[in-house]
Design a protein around this nucleic acid. Structure first.
Lengths: 199, 199
DNA sequence: GAGGATACGGAACTATAATTCCGCTTGTCA
DNA sequence: TGACAAGCGGAATTATAGTTCCGTATCCTC
């Protein structure tokens, strides 16, 4: 189905005219409703629940996102974009490279912790959901690579870790967050991880 | 439903007479079929699929395990038991404590890697599934604690990590295994983790 | 502010997957 | 080896949740 799209890249409207005002507003509401719903109930939150929280009908949800998967995909894409923004900020600020990188991870982890169930929902989502967010993923990876390179060149970070290790580590951290409930001390876990990256 | 059980602990038959020969055989087949099904398809493998692989009818599956959850629970319980057995072995063998512990983790990780999707299915399962396996979990935790204590007393392991950290770490490792496909090099990730435990 | 396109709502539809039911089969024991 | 309890198979049932449809409402343009 999604393989037979007319043209243009996967996500947003391609050459469509701009959305009507109410539609634009609803799209935001839906995304917000979805975040809330998945945060509260995990991936098994139903589309009706998303609609309810967004204050719209299910039909409207489907008008904006053809499937539940597409909705999740958009959430993933946005999350990655936010993380990239953080990374870019970190690159500009400068400072002791390892510390900058560590702080970035801490910030991103905190971001994830705020709605661990949503995180879990996104991780549990199938390949297809992530495939849609490939470009955003690549970008984040690139930025991470640059940040790590700096730290490695100053000798404060192990030379045998690469940017691709980070998603793994964070992925593990997220899994941990959701499996032990909200009171869990993921911060200590993160520090453990950071220690393992230090030279 | 499961809260109104007559008496006795949650899992096995309590004071029932021994299973008939064919039933005992089928129970094993079902468990095996479930392992295969969940390994191949993840938690969304259907009961019919489990039955098919076990070579029995669905009805038979339900005769042995009242719900899908109960079936998953039993798999979790068995996995934990196996890990405990490994831990007990490690305790008896003796040798340099950190090395013994590290090898145990490596072995258990390898065990998990063999059927990462099953692992993922178990992790993704709800609280209730794990609640059933509490005793087995406690036991494994106790053994882990003993092993780590030894390493810490010889000064080869950080003093500020505890046995409860290990499930978190392994949980992260498992999540990683399934999110990056079968070809992923989880071994390097594990070594990273081990490094972070070293004193 | 009229007309037409765009978007909305939510009941109805459909697909999927868990679970039940009951007539039949097989093990067990005297 | 006959009787009966224990166990089996799998079609039918039920529950759940994703998705569609279409009459109605809203926005935008002229």
């Amino acid at each position: 189905m999604s393989l037979t799209q007319p043209a243009g890249e996967a996500g947003e409207q391609v050459d469509e005219r701009p959305l009507r005002a109410d539609a634009r507003r609803n799209r935001e509401r839906i995304l917000q409703g979805a975040r809330e719903a998945f945060s509260a109930l995990g991936a098994e939150a139903q589309m009706d629940e998303v609609a309810r929280r967004a204050g719209v009908g299910v039909g409207t949800v489907y008008r904006h996102f053809p499937t539940k998967e597409a909705l999740l995909s958009e959430l993933v894409r946005q999350k990655l974009t936010t993380m990239s923004a953080n990374a870019r900020l970190a690159l500009e600020v400068g400072g002791e490279p390892f510390g900058v990188f560590a702080d970035l991870l801490r910030r991103n982890a905190a971001l994830a912790a705020r709605d661990a169930a949503l995180q879990h929902a996104m991780l549990g989502a199938g390949e297809r959901v992530w495939a849609q967010a490939r470009p955003e993923e690549e970008e984040l990876l690139g930025l991470t690579d640059e940040l790590m390179g700096r730290a490695q060149r100053t000798g404060t970070m192990r030379a045998d870790v690469s940017a691709t290790d980070i998603p793994m580590l964070m992925c593990g951290l997220c899994a941990t967050m959701t499996h032990t409930g909200p009171g869990f001390d993921w911060q200590r876990h993160l520090e453990l991880i950071l220690d393992s990256l230090r030279a």
